[in-house]
């Protein structure tokens, strides 16, 4: 028995030195610091995707049961509240219709070209980034559905982020709340331009000079300047403005229009020319 152990040990060491270590070094050296998916990463997301889909469906099913059966106690209260909201929304809707009509007339008057909308695709979120340091999402559509790196991602509330990696059936999205995300933006009221950057939980509006008056609650929209996001998409509302004694710019915090905690389905705009590397 001892003899066998003694014989297998050098073989194991040779296997480690000749096969395992070079493979590990090769994989690490070929991937470290890259932003694109390498073949192992593409394989990894393709294999993890079905697992995440299964778990997401389980989560949906359980939350569905919770909302429809166990939360019946709250239904009557919610009903009253919803009736009040409907009344309120009807009023808002009427004012929006009027605004849309005015807008339509002004557009005709100014002879603006009708912007051609790019085709889009809806995808479901199947996974979220588990780490503290990054804000990414995984969705169940990939390059086989026409998605490519750099495409903008929105939901009915506003901007969500942009595609950073794609595999045939899944894509990874960099949320706009991630510090690596930067979007060209305009303050809707006074048309001041700035850059929206993520800070983990919300956004910061950068490069707004001290002279510009920015009001709390003002809406921030995409400027369309970066070439990634179409113009006029909702980004958020100004939540805090700090004017320091020194420095050229104001410190402005923005509350995202999209509720990143409750995202489920996203719309990916199939932009023809993705702009990021």
């Amino acid at each position: 028995m001892r003899k066998n152990k003694g014989q297998t040990r050098p073989i194991r060491i040779i296997i480690i030195l000749v096969i395992v270590l070079p493979v590990i070094f090769y994989v690490l050296a070929s991937t470290i610091g890259r932003k694109d998916f390498s073949l192992p990463h593409r394989l990894a997301i393709e294999m993890l995707g079905p697992v995440q889909t299964a778990f997401s469906k389980t989560l949906d099913l359980s939350s569905d049961i919770w909302h429809h059966y166990l939360a019946l106690v709250q239904v009557s209260r919610e009903n009253d509240q919803l009736r009040r909201e409907i009344k309120h929304n009807k009023k808002i809707n009427a004012s929006f219709r009027e605004a849309a009509a005015v807008n339509g007339r002004l557009q005709k008057l100014l002879d603006l070209e009708q912007s051609v909308k790019d085709p889009s695709i809806t995808a479901q979120i199947i996974g979220r980034d588990p780490s503290i340091w990054f804000k990414t999402l995984t969705v169940n559509k990939g390059s086989s559905s026409g998605i490519a790196k750099g495409m903008p991602v929105i939901n009915p509330e506003g901007v969500v982020g942009q595609v950073i990696n794609v595999s045939p059936h899944y894509s990874k999205i960099l949320a706009a709340t991630d510090p690596n995300s930067a979007i060209d933006a305009i303050v809707q009221g006074n048309r001041t331009q700035g850059i929206i950057k993520g800070n983990g939980r919300g956004y910061q509006l950068l490069y707004i000079s001290r002279e510009n008056i920015v009001r709390l609650g003002a809406h921030i929209i995409t400027s369309g300047m970066g070439g990634i996001f179409p113009k006029g998409l909702a980004i958020g509302q100004i939540a805090k403005v700090i004017k320091r004694r020194r420095g050229m710019f104001q410190k402005i915090r923005v509350k995202p229009a999209a509720d990143f905690q409750r995202l489920e389905y996203l719309t990916i705009i199939l932009h023809r020319k993705p702009m990021i590397d």
Partner: peptide, 17 residues
């Protein structure tokens, strides 16, 4: 590490290392 990188972060190789 590779599996986690596929669904987390934006640089490859970091979790593996």
């Amino acid at each position: 590490g590779i599996l986690l990188e596929a669904v987390s972060g934006y640089f490859m190789g970091i979790y593996a290392i």
